[in-house]
Structure formats: C-alpha cells, structure tokens
Design a protein around this nucleic acid. Structure first.
Length: 831
RNA sequence: GCCGAAGUGGCGGAACUGGCAGACGCGCGCGACUCAAAAUCGCGUUCCUUCGGGAGUGUGGGUUCGAUUCCCACCUUCGGCACCA
C-alpha cells in the first residue's frame, strides 16, 4: 500500500500549505456533522421530500468494499439532491436476523444476539467512516423487539385476512442450514440454498405460507415504476404467467383428474395422460398387475429428484399404472401413466399428453409405443400421419380430427375450444403461474417467532395483538438438529390458549428474514413509534420511496416480497398507492483484484477499513465512482485508485495554494475559457449525478480542476473568475468527497457547512462555445479542422470548408456532388 | 433450449438524438527537479506506414454522404430460468 503523496510543487510550499491529511480531516468533520445533527431529517411541508433508500446491510460482521460501492455513490446522489433543495431522507439500518448468527453461536459459542449486536457496532463505525449523510435518528434494527413486534403484527394481518395459511406439502429443505426455504431462495441448476450453496432436498412438512399468488397479476404490472428492464423481466419470468385452459378428465372409477394446458385446441389429440409420481390419485389408479413397477418408479423418482439432478435431455422414463381415464371431448378411453417429467409443483401435477403437438409427449409416446394423433394442421402442411411423424409439431394451425371443432382456423382455435369446454361443463379458460406461495416458516432460532398458538381445543389461535411481541428467549440451546431450537426450550413453548385459557403450545418456527426487509422502509419513518408499525404522519410525508438502490440479486426475492407486502397493506388500508419504491437502480459488484469474487481463502478481500486508512474515505468514495460503470462493477485495482488520490492532492494544493489571493482579470479570453468550462462542468455533473453516471461525474471534476490549474499557470490566480471557479469546484465536489470539500470550504472562510449550500446553477449562455472546430470531411474522411464561430450558418460553413487548401487537395480538382453541413459540427463534401 | 446484459488502446473506461473514436484516469516512454531515488511537474502515448497516407469500436453483411450508435446473421463472456404442460 502506498503512502499518501507529499506536497505539490514549490509554489505551495512557499505559501506554507500543510499536507492533505484525510486521517485527520475526515473524523473531525464526521464528528462535527453528527454533533450538529446536520443530516437529521424532519417533516417539512415547505420543502419537497425525497426518500432515498439503499438496501439495508445484513449484519454479517465486517463491511465489504461492496457495501461502500452500493452506498457511497448513492450517498453522493442523495447529497446532490439535498443541495438542490429537496428534503432528503437517507436512513441506515440493519437486517439483523438470520442464520449466520446461529452458526457463529454454534462454532464459537457466542450468543447470536451478542454476535449480531457487536457486528452492528462495528458496522455503524464503518458506515460513519463513509462520511455518508445517514440520518441515524431513523436507524432500525430488525432483531429489536420493537421492530419484530410489528413484523409479527404484519403476520397477524396476513392471517386475519386469509393471506397466511398452514399447509402440509413437499418443501425445499436445506440440509446444511437445517431449515425449509421459499422457492425463491433455491437457486441454480443444482437447486442450491441461496445462502450456503448446499443443494436442497424435498421434505414433507407442515409450514406457513403467504398467498403471494393472489397478487400475481398485479405484480406483473410495472406501469408506474421506473425500474430497470432486467429486473422487470426477471420478475415477469419468475411469476411465469401462462394462459390456457383447465379441463377435468375422469378415471374409470369416476375420480376427477384436473389438468392445465396452454393448448386446449389440441384436446382431441390427447392419447394418454401422465401424472407426476407424487400425484395423489396414482395409488388408486394403479392396478395390481402394475403395482410393483409403479412403486419402484415412484421410489426411483423420489431418489432422483432428491439426489441426482435431472437433465433436460435425459430420456423420458415412466410406467403405465394400468388405469384409464376418459377424454371428455371425445369419450375415448386413454391410458394413464406416471412419469417424472411431469412435476407436482407446476399446474395440477397431471397433464393430458398430446404427442403429435408436444415434443416431450412425442418423445414419451415413441419410447412407450403410444398413439400419436395429429389434430392440428399448421399452414403449409398438407397432411399428417401419426404413424410416420418424426417430431412433434407444436405450431398453431387449423384443427382437424377434432369432432365438432374440426376446421376451426388457428387464430380462433383456442378461443373456440375454451367456449366449447365451458358450454359442455368440461373446463374453462384459465391462467396458471409459475410463482408459488411464499413459504415463510424457518426452523431456526434467530428470527421473529411466528405469533401463533396451537390449542388442543381451539386449534390454530393467533396471539392477540396486545400480547405482541412474542419475545424470542435468550436462553436457548443451538443444536443443528433440523428442528427449531425453540422446540427444546423447557418453558417458552408452553403457554395458555388466548381463546380458552387452557394450556397450549407456541409455534416454535420463526419467520423468514425476508419478512423483515419487506417493510423495514416503513419502520425507518418512525423507529420509536409504538402505536403502529409506523407513524401515519411520517408516512404521509415521506412515502413512497423515491429512489431505491441495491443489487440485482434480490430481483426475485426481496423486491417481489416487498411489492407484495405493500399491495396487501394497501388493501388493508394501511398504506396508499400501489408501489413502495418508485425508482430502482442496480449497482454492479466489485470483484477481487484477480477478477473473481472476493474470497477470504484466496486472500482477495478488500477491506474498506484498510483502504480508508491508506487513502482516506474521500479517495475511496471517489475511486469507487470513477473507476467503474456503477451498474457493472469490476475488479478492484490498487493502481487506479492512485489517480484519484493524486487528484485530491492536486485540488488541495490548488485551492489552498491560491486561497485569499485577489487580482484583476488581465486576459478576458482566458477568463472566458475558464468560465465556460465551469458552467459546462455544472451541467455535466448535475446530469450525471441525476442519472447514476458517477464515473463521468469525477472525470468532469478532474477536467475542471485541470482547467483551473492551467488558469493558475497562466497567472489568473485570485481573479474573480478564478475564485468563482474554485468555489464552484468545491460545491460540485461536496457530494462526491464531502470531507475535503468541507475542509477547503472552511479554510476559504466560507460559511459552514458546504453541505447546506445551494447547488450551483448553470447558465446555458455561459456554457456556450463561441468558437467551434468545424470538421471537414471529403467523402466521409476527416481532412481538415477549421476554427469557426459557433453560430456560423450553413453557407458560411460550406464556404469555409471549400476554402481550405487541404480540402481542395483531397477533392483533386473535382466538383462537389453534394455538400452536407451539420450546423456546429461538420461539413462533408462528396465528390 | 429460452430470456437478459456486455464485447471500444497494454488496462479501467468516455462518446448528447447517426456527425472529430479513445474524454478522464492507470500504466508506459522521454524530459525537468535531485548527488541519487521517491514524490511532484512538463511533453508524448490506438495500430501500421514507403510519412503521401492507410486500417481500426467482437465477426460478416446491410442502410446512409457519414455507423461504437440503426437493421440482419453469427461468435464470445457473464447472469437468470430450465421437462412450466
């Protein structure tokens, strides 16, 4: 690690400027800002509010340079908006419940609470060292009883409104974390746990779910949101809406088998049915002759889905149950098979198989010698023969072999079939979603207890609201048994039924920590309010969140959940509007110097504390903004940060080395150049901060400071224009490098604080160029550059271009065939 | 397989709405200062060149007076989903 540079050239030493020492400056100003409550925000009806939120950090211990990357550019933008006159709230908080605390407890024998809260202490210190405009009076910690009391209260609202229910079902279980997970928290091809990367297994368990699927359609509506397209697409795909029909087939015993299909127009081509091996009717359908094979297959399938991951191109296996069903549109008797390519978790767990028009069904039919019957004739196809087809034809087309609907053209096929199904009472048009209800039970200790009591007489009884919070006990044994640690507490689980007063048992599972983060933005409004989750007065002023920043990895988890919560609260008249966060922007990731994810074992973790110690927080902030496209991120580069370190030193020496000088303008042309540059910089920095283009913010500031240095070298130091440029430079730097800007501002004798100053206005007239470089092309190739007045008209530009000797030379004596003039830019002469 | 993002000097990255490709910085080279080095400052830095110029933004086409930018096809990398009925 290199040292912060020494002094600049002799000019500065002569004037006795001390060395730029961020280690001294930064803590001093941080202390003063906090003592003065500079960033404390309160309701102010006279000013326009701006709720600027950055995703709350998980209390894992040390902060990562990635946290800085997420938070400090956001802070710069928040500061910019504040200087623009908005009443900007930028609150901090901590996502404090979760499994790592419990793992630490097991490994190191530290209580999860102690581990979490000492981490919070450290993280607070680190967040203070960012020099960000956190309003600490609004800090909220999800593991505080005053916070999770309301998380539990929200659970009760869900429960009371039939949005929370308990269900026995096959669920995803992480054998390492020893808990169930929501579908969103199972990732990748090998279906691994989002937190620990261990492949999950299936378990049959009774768990609590939230009816997020009820809001599926509404969650697909992004019309009022300024969110990145990729996030909207991820959510749309995750919700996975598909339109089609539901139809009911009956077994020969009269049991209904409901199916969902996106191709009701192919119903007449259903020549067999396939059930998922776990389908509840399999047992009843199976005839004695096939029982052994069916049971073998079910057993194998269970092992397969748990252990090996099935791959797409795997052969389609399956067995006949011996049972038959009746195709309701033509009363044909068709065999019922089971196969693991049909999933219990999608649709109804049963399909009608139309081998002529579905690739999977075709493959299965050919393998097991089942009938292929074409019922759709795509345009351009003369005729189809099921015996000789070599592949399924999934295209739309005219219906054939389809009883009364034969001859229906492709465009009308689905619509007419749906009408037919409804008329005959066989089925109707239906929509199916990939989205599952949200499984919120966790078999862990370090979470908010689910406020439910199980009474032998009254059954499931919610804990009355006035008895909240259901406090998480401290004295718990953490054992990785796969069962909730609260279950083993000697007394905690025993309680009296709130309804009948008889002895009853508490629910011992805790809630998914994503519940905490689904509403934390509301707790920030009034973290001490104890009559409701938030103070309605604060809500009315601050909500909704105007800008939300964070990583895209939460697209299908947190960002779906929080939208769901908001819509539920709206329907319960707790909140207003349809969305909690209007604008979303995603930052990328900072990688290790080797271009890989930072890793402790490879020693590639960049610790912000080290960087701050070596270069100062301002340099780290400026580098994180300057060195990357914020939305992309990239590898940490220990050399490139030197660029901003040098820049800050140059600015320090420039500003303080010329402080207090007064002079009169001697060269109006040079003064005009500096003035123009200053206004252009105001324009660009404003635009780029507004649009999250932080790298060009810093490069524009560098250009301005370079221009001021050039002005100093030209003897302009102390002139009004020069001093104005210095002042503007400091104001523009304030959001990016808040400490050095404040220090220099103070040393220039300007009023405290620079962060309370108005953002400089740019004057378009002042930013205008009087002269431009007119590019002259011949046949599209640049041949000459001529300095001309900016307001030159087309004829003059043309004349100037043709007057150029170089241009004449390249025209080779030919007459111009065509001359294109782009005002203020170029002339292209075509010969 | 489907969906999405991205390919620009040695490197990070700029380029408004189709109009000077490479801003700003890193690195590198040369010079100044120094006994020397570091730091700092100045100049240079896409490639090729017979010094006229030529080529160049992943590849190949196209539209246009003009394309990093628009269109078509393809390649590579990264991310998501994946037998979704």
């Amino acid at each position: 690690m290199r040292e912060v540079s020494e002094t600049d050239g002799d000019t500065v030493e002569e004037r006795g400027v001390d060395r730029y020492d961020p280690g001294e400056i930064e803590p001093r100003w941080q202390g003063k800002w906090e003592a003065d409550q500079l960033y404390r925000t309160t309701i102010d009806p006279d000013r326009e509010k701006f709720y600027f939120l950055t995703m709350l950090p998980y209390t894992s211990g040390d902060m990562h340079i990635g946290h800085w990357y997420a938070m400090t550019p956001s802070d710069a933008r928040a500061r910019y908006l504040r200087m623009r006159g908005y009443n900007v709230m930028f609150p901090p908080g901590f996502d404090a419940f979760g499994l790592p605390a419990e793992n630490a407890a097991i490994e190191r024998n530290i209580h999860p609470k102690q581990w979490t809260y000492s981490n919070i202490e450290n993280m607070r210190r680190q967040m203070r060292s960012m020099g960000a405009m956190w309003d600490w009076s609004r800090e909220a910690i999800s593991a505080d009883p005053e916070f999770y009391r309301w998380t539990q209260w929200f659970f009760l609202q869900m429960f009371n409104n039939d949005l929370a229910y308990r269900k026995m079902s096959p669920v995803d279980w992480c054998p390492h974390c020893n808990t169930t997970l929501a579908r969103e928290q199972v990732w990748g091809e090998d279906r691994h746990c989002e937190r620990c990367k261990t492949p999950v297994i299936k378990k049959d368990l009774e768990q609590w779910f939230f009816r997020i699927t009820k809001y599926a359609d509404e969650l697909l509506d992004f019309s009022i949101l300024d969110w990145p397209e990729p996030v909207r697409i991820l959510q749309t795909n995750w919700i996975g809406r598909s339109e089609g029909a539901r139809a009911v087939f009956y077994t020969e015993d009269g049991d209904p088998i409901e199916i969902f299909t996106t191709r009701p127009d192919t119903l007449w081509g259903a020549t067999f049915m396939v059930l998922a091996p776990e389908h509840p009717l399999v047992e009843k359908l199976t005839t004695p002759d096939y029982a052994d094979a069916v049971h073998d297959y079910i057993h194998q399938a269970a092992r397969r889905s748990d252990i090996e991951r099935e791959t797409i191109d795997r052969e389609k296996t399956g067995v006949f149950t011996g049972g038959y069903a009746i195709n309701p549109v033509n009363d044909e008797r068709i065999p019922v098979w089971i196969a693991d390519y049909v999933l219990m978790t999608y649709g109804t767990g049963a399909i009608m198989a139309v081998p002529a028009h579905d690739h999977r069904d075709f493959e299965f039919a050919r393998k097991h010698d089942l009938e292929v019957r074409p019922v759709i004739l795509p345009s351009g196809v003369e005729s189809l023969d099921g015996e000789t087809m070599t592949e399924a034809l999934p295209d739309y087309g005219t219906m054939i072999n389809s009883g009364p609907l034969s001859g229906t053209p492709g465009e009308l096929a689905i619509e007419r079939t749906n009408a037919y199904l409804e008329e005959k009472g066989i089925g109707d048009a239906a929509v199916n979603y990939r989205l599952h209800d949200w499984l919120i039970s966790r078999q862990r200790y370090w979470g908010a207890p689910i406020p439910i009591v199980y009474c032998p007489t009254c059954g499931i009884v919610p804990v009355p609201e006035d008895q909240l919070p259901v406090v998480l006990p401290d004295d718990v044994e953490w054992r990785p048994t796969g069962e909730s640690p609260l279950k083993f507490h000697p007394t905690w689980g025993h309680t009296d039924c709130p309804k009948c007063g008889e002895p009853a048992k508490r629910e011992t599972d805790t809630m998914d920590t994503f519940m905490c983060s689904s509403w934390y933005h509301l707790r920030y409004l009034s973290p001490d309010y104890d009559e409701a989750p938030f103070d309605p007065k604060e809500y009315d002023y601050w909500m909704p969140v105007d800008t939300y920043t964070g990583g895209i990895e939460h697209a299908t988890m947190h960002l779906i959940y929080t939208r769901f919560f908001h819509k539920v609260f709206r329907d319960l008249d707790l909140t207003e509007g349809h969305e909690p966060m209007l604008q979303l922007r995603n930052q990328g990731q900072i990688l290790g110097p080797d271009g890989q994810r930072m890793s402790k074992s490879r020693g590639t973790v960049i610790e912000p504390d080290d960087q701050v110690r070596a270069y100062g927080a301002d340099a780290v902030r400026a580098y994180l903004m300057f060195g990357y496209r914020w939305s992309e991120g990239g590898p940490w580069n220990a050399d490139n940060i030197q660029g901003v370190v040098r820049w800050l030193n140059r600015v320090w020496n420039l500003v303080l080395g010329t402080a207090g000088l007064t002079a009169i303008d001697s060269d109006p042309a040079f003064a005009r150049t500096l003035q123009r540059k200053m206004h252009q910089t105001i324009r660009q920095v404003s635009h780029d901060l507004e649009n999250f283009e932080f790298n060009t913010v810093v490069s524009a500031l560098m250009e301005l400071s370079n221009a001021i240095v050039a002005a100093r070298e030209a003897g302009m130091a102390g002139t009004p224009v020069f001093n104005d440029a210095i002042e503007t430079l400091l104001l523009l730097m304030a959001p990016v490098t808040p400490h050095i800007a404040e220090e220099m501002w103070a040393r220039l004798g300007k009023p405290y604080s620079i962060h309370n100053q108005a953002w400089p206005e740019y004057d378009p007239e002042m930013a205008k160029e009087e002269e431009i470089t007119l590019v002259v092309q011949v046949n599209g190739k640049v041949r000459d550059r001529i300095i001309v007045p900016a307001d030159i008209d087309e004829e003059q530009a043309k004349a100037a271009a043709l007057a150029s000797e170089i241009v004449q030379h390249h025209m080779g004596g030919k007459e111009p065939r065509r001359v294109i003039v782009v005002p203020g830019r170029l002339v292209n002469i075509v010969v």
